[in-house]
Design a protein around this nucleic acid. Structure first.
Lengths: 340, 340
DNA sequence: GTTTGTAACTAAATCGGTTTAGTTAATATG
DNA sequence: CATATTAACTAAACCGATTTAGTTACAAAC
């Protein structure tokens, strides 16, 4: 079962490599290769199950039919789900996906992007650390096809597909407020990501709408590296504070899990004593005790729309304007907010 | 910021492409390139941030510094976690990972493997549908480096890294039995995967050890495509059966989630009326009501060991014998089995 | 009977590297 | 002084495709 190459086919059939290449790329007709010859070549190729070497093809065509996916962490179920949708759609269009996780390290992200460019990816989908403005800017300056997902650079004009983070926490917080909660804490990540800022702003906006005076101490920020311990400490403080919270909004799923874990350990009744709401969710959040009310993100849409836009860019028939898509989020209301 | 190529460096420094290539590949000394020249080249390369085109390099070297990962589904948290570890380790060793999900379709899996070979991956890590014996056999016959993970072909001699599925359910079931449960149901997938068969055997073995007569009706098999509905129906039957179950073992995490959902809907008390144990878990299984006792899989080890073995194979210094690694699983005991 | 047109091909350059097999000039050896 | 050795490089082939710019042979047009 020896592998056959273009050369072999050409030699065996007494035609040139050019002819074989043209025929196998469906350019036989437009190049007036006789039906006879075409049949011969196609039959031979099928019989010997010829498949072109993608590296050679990529090198000579200057493209690779590959798209690069740069995300913070493939093991995060949120990105894993998006990756799944991206992969499926890309595959359908004949593209392979190579992926890399940046683990929120801007330097690493930059290297990953470079490394993907060296591999001649035809386009990139990036959930950026939001600290690589220059890298992104340079992609844009070079007219390289890319789409940002989940996180974008608000003041850079690029294509992006994000969700409405502001609305998400605003809606979640407002829901708690409308149920009568008044001391609402916010457990979030240390600033740095625009998405996180938006979630904070949404939380604050809801308070404002309800005429609640914001209290700085009710906002607890943890570092990503040590979030479990810091969330535990945060919860301990928030429930003890002179005016202890009667509700908590968590800025992302793993903070929610860590927070709920601690609330249980402290024997604090959720939602009776403290109601909670999560931005984004884990797969079993409908099974937890209590089931957790969560802002749900449309992973399928994020992935599919991103690929759509990217393909437009790659094919070159994208509109000249940059496209920003802000997808709606929804609030899945469950028991943890105390309304059901 | 124009990209520079070997050619450019050579021209600008008045040396040959060969010299540049040798120096930048750290073969300057062994090829007696003068320190002077080496410095010049390295400096120039750094200044113009030269990076080799990986396609060209791959084409000419016959390898691509890429490994292919074929898994059932990247959106499944179990595989997503493994993928994360594989990626991290591979990256550390200078390899990029391309991945594809087979969605348990053997034909698709075959195509994915072929497509990866065309992309000249240096090696493959495959969590197979276990219905591609020939494909795998042919990889082996061609001495192509690959490692099977999670699922292997028991009677093919290949390298693999799996967990002890049999022990997993045996241990889980035995735990329920030791707590006095006697009517233990098993909710699993329709046969096809060896791992699933092993889990069934483990369940049956535990019954046998405890001298319990197995009852066929207590084993409920669902199809992957329609597992939610079929699990719901299964649960309904199992709790009604002339001798209703007092415990359930679930063969995989999503069946557990679906099952627990239905048990709650039916207002069946877990673990009082029905205790449950899960093979594999979701991230919030310690937060569910009740927290779910689960057989936990060592995703990190699976990923790391697989990459280790694969690298040995790729580098060619692997032992001639095939290496099978069966990793231990552990039982995380939580409230759903009624022991705590 | 020369020119034009066209059908059916092909030689050779190219993509950007790696690598083999030398070459050249200077130095060491007998 | 002829020969061998070595340091320091390089020309050119090669990897396996794609693609540009032809070529050849024959028929049609003027």
């Amino acid at each position: 079962m020896k592998r056959v190459f273009l050369k072999d086919i050409a030699k065996d059939l007494n035609v040139s490599k050019t002819t074989v290449s043209l025929v196998l790329n469906n350019k036989g007709d437009e190049n007036k290769i006789s039906q006879d010859t075409q049949q011969k070549i196609i039959a031979y190729a099928k019989e010997h199950s010829y498949v072109p070497n993608q590296l050679a093809r990529g090198l000579s065509r200057g493209k690779s039919e590959t798209i690069g996916l740069v995300i913070p962490n493939i093991s995060d179920i949120f990105y894993a789900r998006i990756a799944g949708f991206i992969e499926r759609k890309a595959k359908k269009l004949g593209y392979t996906v190579i992926f890399s996780s940046s683990y929120e390290d801007p330097k690493k992200e930059g290297e990953l992007i470079q490394s993907m460019l060296n591999r001649q990816v035809d386009g990139l989908i990036i959930a950026s650390t939001q600290q690589n403005r220059e890298e992104i800017q340079s992609l844009k300056a070079n007219d390289f096809p890319f789409v940002l997902i989940d996180r974008h650079y608000p003041d850079n004009e690029t294509d992006y597909v994000i969700v409405d983070n502001f609305e998400g926490t605003k809606k979640a917080t407002a829901h708690l407020l409308s149920l009568g909660r008044r001391k609402i804490g916010f457990v979030t990540l240390k600033p740095g990501l625009e998405v996180i800022r938006q979630r904070l702003l949404g939380y604050q906006k809801a308070l404002e709408i309800f005429g609640i005076e914001p209290i700085d101490e009710l906002i607890h920020e943890v570092s990503r590296e040590n979030y479990e311990e810091e969330t535990v400490n945060g919860i301990k403080q928030l429930v003890q504070f002179p005016n202890a919270v009667d509700a908590l909004v968590f800025a992302t799923h793993y903070l929610t899990a860590a927070g709920l874990r601690e609330l249980k350990r402290l024997n604090i009744k959720v939602p009776q004593e403290v109601a909670i709401v999560s931005f984004d969710e884990l797969e079993a959040f409908d099974l937890t005790d209590p089931a957790i009310t969560a802002v749900t993100q449309p992973a399928a849409d994020i992935g599919n729309v991103a690929v759509d836009i990217l393909m437009d860019k790659i094919k070159g028939d994208a509109p000249l304007t940059q496209m920003g898509r802000v997808l709606n989020i929804e609030l899945a209301i469950r028991r943890s907010c105390g309304s059901v």
